[in-house]
Design a protein around this nucleic acid. Structure first.
Length: 277
DNA sequence: CTGGGGATGGGGCCC
DNA sequence: GGGGCCCCATCCCCA
């Protein structure tokens, strides 16, 4: 099971760098200028206006579209049109996760497919309760030019939603991020700036290269306190330590068999576990 | 099929 | 903002 903050369920798990054609590769390797301006927060009056296209830098900046309310529940939800007032109900689909994390699936779905066909069923009453609006702290900070009102109005909430829906899209894949920093970090997985001098293999991070170099040098700085084995990678030592433990963390729900690693449990389950009773 | 090691990817956190 | 490290996850391979 992927980590919660890695949104890999709907995207290819690993970047296929081989798919980057030579032109793109050159482009990727060319230094970009992230200092070029990103649009700042827009005033509320412009929220319904299409934004001018922004310069292509590391990725594409664009405001996520407002999600059209979908009357899937017994409560009638209406679109916002005209002046915003507290009386207008509006649903929100804030990005899942916190600052720097990828946006949740609903937002991507909203970009690419008809919203009406993709939104999950909604809980009607919760939609209308102000406390249901939970903003990522960082996003809210960016979004608000002034302190939030003591009692958040629907217009204020809508404004927050719109600001939170701004996203930074990678120009080389479909991933989207709520911060430029996160996007730049991701871009490194395309540019692979850290190259091994011994074999030429490239990595996105210096410490990944460092770990790789250990495969050349044979250095194994992580020793097992229970046996004489040593490892080049801390994670592998941790996995090894599980073999010394009597308690295996991962248990099959069907046959109660336990495994030291979740990957072993997954393989066990994929193999069909025990026959169905 | 299972268990384990090796290698690597990638977001978060801290400095 | 960037580097280093942490942590978790996954794939591959072999016994």
């Amino acid at each position: 099971m992927p980590r919660s903050f890695l949104v890999k369920k709907y995207l290819s798990k690993k970047t296929n760098y081989g798919q980057l054609d030579s032109k793109k590769r050159e482009d990727v390797l060319a230094p970009h200028s992230p200092e070029e301006s990103m649009p700042g927060p827009l005033p509320l009056s412009q929220m319904s206006c299409p934004l001018p296209s922004s310069p292509q830098i590391l990725g594409e900046w664009r405001p996520a579209p407002l999600v059209t309310p979908v009357p899937r529940t017994s409560v009638e939800l209406t679109s916002v049109s005209g002046p915003l007032t507290d009386a207008q109900p509006w649903r929100t689909d804030f990005p899942r996760g916190g600052p720097g994390q990828e946006l949740g699936r609903p937002l991507l779905v909203a970009h690419n497919t008809p919203v009406r066909d993709s939104l999950p069923a909604l809980e009607p009453l919760r939609l209308l309760e102000p406390h249901a609006f939970r903003l990522p702290a960082h996003a809210a900070e960016l979004a608000l030019e002034r302190a939030p009102p003591r009692r958040p109005s629907w217009a204020w909430q809508l404004r927050c939603e719109w600001q939170c829906h701004r996203c930074f899209s990678c120009k080389y894949c479909d991933k989207e991020y709520v911060s430029l920093g996160a996007l730049k970090m991701h871009i490194r997985t395309h540019t692979l700036p850290c190259v091994c001098k011994l074999c030429g293999k490239a990595f996105s991070r210096p410490w990944l290269l460092q770990g790789h170099i250990r495969t050349h040098t044979g250095e194994k700085p992580f020793s097992c306190p229970h046996c004489s084995r040593a490892f080049a990678d801390r994670s592998n030592l941790r996995a090894h330590l599980q073999t010394h433990s009597d308690i295996k963390k991962y248990q099959c729900k069907r046959c109660s068999k336990t495994f030291s690693r979740i990957s072993l449990l997954s393989k066990h389950e994929e193999a069909g576990c025990c026959p169905l009773s």
